[in-house]
């Protein structure tokens, strides 16, 4: 019984991080209507950002987080204006290949900068634990969960109540009607893409609390995020958050209860994607940015 509780706590803490990784992807798709295959690479770059902050500047990743978010926003904005904006009206093939190419470029920039070696940016306190009853809580996981929760809450509040957040949802729901409101969709696209990038970078910075960093970590993260976003319904923030927890719980259960489960966990995302696409390609939980 306590075992189950421990598993659920672990899954819950992990789910927060998964949610943050996927919310950016979901936002980008919901507004710009492009699945960004480079999203996993943003997470990877965020993790290396935290690594550099810790090793070069001796700055705690949590302190570096706001700067990384701003950098991610600027980088995403430039990437959109400079590259992605040019394929908005192109066929899906071009869009897919373009973001795939961006992923390849970012991945190997990381190889050049940091080599393929495994790195870690875990501050010492991330490894310590607190025992509540019979449940172990690893501080790194708890912090990651809290940061993810704060950022997602900030995002949803902004989308819901701010003037610009409302404009973002308007563009996602009806592009032409948004123009009639005086909203400049080009600006909103750039903003949403930049935000999506910043969220990816932010989740990378806190991923470094939990796992090791390599230039190639982005792909499996992307796959998980895609599974989550599809399960939640492409573009729905609320759906994304819920399905992030579903995936985290499913993975944790598989890892624990299936023999040699740790190896199979990577397959859970695959099973979810194939299952959903076969049964309900529009996703299970939500639709267009219904936060």
């Amino acid at each position: 019984m306590t075992n189950l509780l421990q598993l659920l706590i672990d899954a819950l803490l992990m789910g927060g991080l998964y949610a943050l990784m996927s919310v950016g992807l979901s936002l980008g798709f919901g507004v710009v209507r492009i699945i960004n295959f480079a999203h996993g690479e943003f997470v990877m770059l965020g993790a290396y950002g935290a690594y550099w902050a810790l090793t070069l500047l001796h700055v705690d990743p949590l302190l570096a987080l706001p700067f990384l978010i701003v950098l991610g926003y600027l980088g995403g904005w430039l990437l959109f204006r400079g590259v992605v904006a040019w394929v908005l009206k192109a066929p899906a093939l071009n869009q897919i290949l373009l973001t795939f190419g961006i992923a390849l470029v970012l991945q190997h920039i990381a190889v050049v900068l940091w080599t393929g070696d495994v790195r870690s940016a875990m501050p010492e306190y991330a490894l310590s634990t607190t025992i509540i009853g019979d449940v172990f809580v690893v501080h790194g996981r708890l912090i990651a969960f809290l940061v993810a929760g704060t950022l997602i809450a900030a995002l949803t509040t902004w989308l819901r109540y701010s003037e610009t957040g409302r404009a973002v949802r308007a563009v996602a729901q009806n592009h032409d009607a948004a123009i009639l409101m005086g909203i400049n969709p080009g600006r909103i696209y750039a903003l949403a893409f930049a935000m999506s990038t910043a969220l990816g970078i932010a989740s990378g910075a806190i991923v470094s609390f939990l796992i090791n960093i390599t230039p190639f970590m982005g792909f499996s993260i992307l796959l998980k995020a895609v599974a989550i976003v599809i399960l939640g319904g492409l573009g729905s923030i609320a759906g994304t958050v819920i399905s992030a927890f579903i995936l985290a719980i499913a993975e944790t259960m598989v890892a624990y209860y299936v023999p040699e489960g740790a190896g199979w966990t990577e397959g859970v995302a695959f099973a979810v994607i194939v299952g959903i696409l076969l049964v309900r390609p529009r996703g299970i939980i939500g639709s267009a940015l219904a936060t």
């Binding site: 390849l104 190997h108 990381a110 050049v112 393929g116």
Partner: peptide, 22 residues
């Protein structure tokens, strides 16, 4: 000698081709 550069350039070519030479 430089690991990663060739694939990096590859990615750049992919991006460039999609943009200017579809």
């Amino acid at each position: 000698g430089m690991v990663g550069i060739s694939l990096l350039v590859f990615g750049l070519v992919l991006v460039a081709v999609v943009l200017v030479l579809p």
